[in-house]
Design a protein around this nucleic acid. Structure first.
Lengths: 215, 215
DNA sequence: GGCCACAATCAGAGAATTGCTGATTTCCCG
DNA sequence: CGGGAAATCAGCAATTCTCTGATTGTGGCC
């Protein structure tokens, strides 16, 4: 079970150095090293590696776009982005493009190996220096794209997901059925869904209810 | 981390013999041995053991009822039923009463120890001689209690769980909305649920749809 | 203090869905 | 050749949904 790796970076010295480092590891094999994004896409579709180690800044086609292309065409291939910078924007763009891992060029060889093994195993890898920013970005996106639910809405969501009818919820909460309907509409609008089925899935994902019993 | 065990059996010789066997094992300690079901319930609520080793046939209160009582009052206590017979009815009754394990009196000491360790660790234990019967019983129950869905019903279930309305499903399938409604009713009746929320959860559990996107 | 945004509440009216009963057709199995 | 189950559809009353519009209370902000 060796992990087959394609390396894409526009600096020859880095390519050779990283290849040497990785080849010291018995379970990782560098099967190709290319110097631009187009070559990375081509060689990946030809060789079908397990992991592509992708530099961000490359001529012809940058690493982000190359990642997007590879992930779209070969979802089984995992991409680890190798970058000089830890700025949250680059990181989240790379991850949005479909990268499974993100490591900095300043990292130790051991970390690079850990990242490759992690993504080859189907997990992800984020170098500690960027995780904070990613989490912050994530929560910001969550709150702007998906507005926070109000406490009342959360209660109604839970009851809906538990299978209660509008009338039943109104009785339980001691409010009018009309109000429950309004809450439901607000919920659907916020969650971006237009059915009880969608609301229920959202509730399950959010942990507001369980999948346990039928309702 | 020794496992504290209460032993309940109406034959003194068996109590002494099993206690001796278990005490040879360093991580298992028999803290009490009683001779009827009532005493088992009493001593269990008093001592709070990790595991109760429970004979099925006992005077005053049989092992099944004693198990039911113990599990209801002290859910943290695990019960291993010790029985002479492997008949599926006894086994499934015992498991339905809340037993976590089932071993035969004809088993080796090593198996008893394995069973006790397993249930103490929060898992279950079924002696191989009875697993076949239990699985058969289970699938029979499944098919009678939860009748198999027809292929058409599965299709409708999926579409409902994906958030489509009755009218939309009718269009997609090229049938009347009334028919879709009938399918939905049959689904709810079979699944034992009376809401789209319940159906959606069932669909997710069954893998008919995913939790991914909202709808 | 006044203003504004928003949560929470409710209502009206027409459209859609639900729940229940009942029926027909087709098809497979013994 | 039945018998039964699956799949289809209808009628009808009750409920729910959708959309629009409105009121009240609260908290933050100038």
């Amino acid at each position: 079970m060796t992990v087959r790796v394609v390396l894409a970076d526009d600096h020859q010295l880095l390519r050779e150095g990283v290849a040497a480092l990785l080849d010291r590891t018995s379970d990782i094999e560098v099967i190709a090293a290319v110097e631009d994004g187009v070559a990375a896409v081509d060689i990946t579709s030809e060789l079908g590696p397990d992991v592509v180690l992708m530099d961000v800044s490359m001529p012809v086609l940058n690493g982000i776009e190359a990642t997007r292309s590879i992930v779209r065409e070969q979802p089984a291939v995992r991409v680890v982005v190798l970058s000089m910078h830890a700025d949250p924007h680059t990181v989240s763009t790379a991850l949005a493009a479909g990268a499974s891992g993100y490591v900095l060029k300043g990292c130790a060889a051991a970390e690079l190996v850990a990242a490759i093994r992690s993504v080859a195993g189907g997990r992800g890898y984020l170098t500690p220096a960027v995780t904070g920013g990613v989490l912050r970005e994530l929560s910001e996106l969550r709150s702007t794209v998906v507005p926070a639910l109000t406490s009342r809405e959360r209660v109604v969501l839970q009851l809906i997901a538990e299978g209660h009818s509008t009338g039943a919820i109104a009785l339980l909460l001691g409010i009018s059925a009309k109000t429950v309907g309004t809450h439901r509409e607000h919920l659907m609008a916020k969650v971006g869904v237009r059915s009880v089925a969608g609301l229920t899935k959202y509730a399950v994902r959010q942990g507001v209810t369980t999948l346990d019993h039928g309702e």
